[in-house]
Design a protein around this nucleic acid. Structure first.
Lengths: 162, 162
DNA sequence: ACTGAAACCGATCCGGT
DNA sequence: ACCGGATCGGTTTCAGT
């Protein structure tokens, strides 16, 4: 993971469909070299996938809520997490510090759907209480943080070697 | 926005680098037709972009926190949102209902960086108080919700026509 | 680890239906 | 709206450095 890899990653984070030729031009390498590097980054689990970003309202998902989940005393966190993952409405799931075990992001079409989704959440074994915060507007979301790009080569903390 | 468009969108959400030829095979159309449809979806703002997803730890961003932001009485929400957007550490920003004005997702390298980031948040004009929830583990994130794909053609709520 | 050539395949344009 | 052909450019492989 050197400076060039980071530049490639930064580019692919903002334009996930950039061609290898294009990437090669921005980093000053041949397309084949970039192809090789990207393959290694994918294999190493640094790049985990590519996704199209879709306007949620345009696909009928105009209502977003953040839901804190208080567990029962007897619950296994892992079981609860798995159950949360089985609900299609739950887009993201974070285990958190504090008196709630999880915070999940729920996305649905209408407030009626939200009511249904919350009902399903509460019916999960191990869920004692939920605390819902309705999102009024998404100002921005999933923005790439490029802080790490300025750092010297070996300074990535936390694992996943190349 | 018909059934085929939704199928294309679903495919691109899970594989943002799928070729038009590939997409054509999965929906039963020629590559040129798919090319045309995707172009229209992009132009209509249904597809807003393509992003590589990166393992946060691998790029030196192993610490995530959710921060609720209480505004001062005199603050303009829009000004605060803009200021939040100027901080690189703030990955997402939601205006929410409740006694907090915003919930933001912050991603940094270390707890030291988190302390610095929270300091910067509090120094924003219009921010009275912050309430931080540290993420212990991300169970899953940004999962595509496919509820809308089962719906009949004209049933997408909330706007953005084709 | 990178390059450049070469074969292959997909993207993109366009005329026709 | 879709197709199919033609062309152009990118992807992918590989031998060479």
């Amino acid at each position: 993971m050197d400076h060039v890899d980071r530049k490639i990653i930064a580019e692919l984070r903002t334009n996930g469909r950039a061609s290898y030729a294009e990437l090669g031009r921005t980093v000053g390498l041949s397309a084949s070299s970039v192809h090789e590097r990207v393959g290694k980054l994918e294999a190493a689990g640094v790049i985990t996938g590519y996704h199209a970003v879709v306007d949620a309202r345009a696909v009928g998902l105009g209502v977003t809520a953040l839901v804190g989940i208080q567990p029962t005393d007897t619950a296994s966190d892992d079981d609860v997490a798995v159950a949360l993952g089985e609900l299609d409405e739950v887009e993201s799931c974070y285990a958190v510090a504090g008196d709630e075990a999880f915070v999940v992001k729920v996305r649905v079409g209408t407030v009626d759907d939200l009511e249904l989704a919350l009902g399903r959440l509460r019916r999960i074994d191990g869920v004692a209480r939920t605390h819902t915060t309705v999102v009024l507007s998404t100002r921005f979301e999933g923005r790439p943080n490029n802080t790490s790009l300025g750092r010297p080569a070996g300074d990535a903390r936390g694992g996943v070697a190349s």
